[in-house]
């Protein structure tokens, strides 16, 4: 297997607040990695660093063999990194279908019928096809989250970054989401998933890392990580009922 993503000693601070502290890890092509950590640990900031929304103060980020540290967010998206935002960022005045088309045409670089077909396919998969002509601004939270996933998939990513996409879902919705993410994973897309709904995470990922204060404090096989005293301490009160 080849390496798809590598972070080497990445650091980022806003004044006294450190969001990434000498952060290093790698991801194999086709692997699914889970990220745990308390609120404010720097998980979303780590995604911002990988997607180019934030520039690191130090360190190096390599994607598919290329050093992308200096590239902007748009270039990284076109090269195959897609994300879903924790706080959904829909294009509120555009329809759901047009939101998907933005990803298919701008990021995946498709045109005409090909782009339209991909969007319909993905909307069907994410159960948003019935809402295709609705303005994204009028969607419920659940559908906004589905739209985040839809847009990310219409970008035809090699690496998919999911940011707390299962939060606030009912048990049935969560089960459906897990099935969707599993099938995305099975199609060969590499995934990094930040999630507080631990059982959802455990159902998909092959490896876990735990982050606190921007530092990686644990890494390894999911079950072993969840049982480690360090993680138990941070996550006291959160059940791991996988």
């Amino acid at each position: 297997m080849t390496q798809i993503l590598q972070l080497d000693a990445v650091s980022k601070a806003f004044g006294a607040v450190t969001v990434a502290d000498d952060l290093s890890y790698g991801l194999e092509e086709g692997e699914a990695l889970g990220v745990l950590g308390p609120n404010g640990a720097g998980k979303t900031s780590m995604f911002n660093l990988i997607t180019g929304t934030l520039k690191p103060d130090a360190g190096r980020i390599t994607f598919a063999g290329d050093d992308i540290t200096a590239l902007g967010a748009a270039r990284r998206s076109r090269s195959g990194i897609a994300r879903s935002f924790q706080v959904p960022q829909p294009f509120t005045h555009m329809t759901v279908f047009e939101n998907a088309m933005v990803a298919a045409t701008q990021s995946a670089g498709l045109a005409g019928r090909e782009a339209e077909r991909l969007c319909i396919e993905v909307l069907d998969q994410t159960e948003l096809l019935d809402k295709a002509n609705d303005r994204a601004g009028g969607l419920t939270l659940l559908n906004r989250k589905r739209l985040e996933l839809t847009r990310a998939l219409c970008a035809k990513p090699r690496l998919l970054l999911l940011d707390e996409i299962a939060g606030g879902l009912t048990e049935a919705e969560c089960t459906a989401l897990i099935a969707t993410i599993k099938s995305i994973h099975a199609s060969g897309v590499s995934i990094i998933w930040i999630e507080h709904v631990v059982h959802a995470l455990m159902a998909v990922v092959e490896r876990l890392i735990v982050i606190d204060f921007g530092r990686k404090i644990a890494e390894g096989e999911p079950k072993a990580i969840m049982d480690s005293p360090e993680v138990q301490e941070i996550y006291l009160g959160i059940e791991a009922d996988a």
Partner: peptide, 14 residues
């Protein structure tokens, strides 16, 4: 049209 709606999401979508 996408940029007009949301610059953050636009950049993230290429």
């Amino acid at each position: 049209t996408a940029i007009r709606d949301n610059e953050l999401a636009s950049a993230s979508l290429g």
